[in-house]
Amino acid sequence: MKLPKWKEMPEGIVILEAGNAQEYETGSWRTFRPVVDKSKCINCLFCWIYCPDTSIIVKDEKMEGIDYAHCKGCGICSKVCPVKAISMVEEGSL
């Protein structure tokens, strides 16, 4: 994002676009990548409720995949998965 010049700053210390951190990609932080085996997934959504990075994509109550643009690869999803449907794979080894 291009940073504003001082004359372009809004009055007050504010960010007016709520939730624009979505534009900032933290996916590059990852060392290990969560990979989902959809054949095992039971859509319990534990991965989703425990994700610190809002990076589990859920549609119509079903786990649809992972938002790799933001996922930091912490591995919580793979640990809370009751059916071991998510494995952590080293980046670059795919």
Binding site: A21, Q22, Y24, E25, T26, D53, T54, K72
Partner: peptide, 12 residues
Amino acid sequence: RLTGGHRLCAGC
């Protein structure tokens, strides 16, 4: 109502 893209540590 909290998006991804924040800079908290992995696993926070």
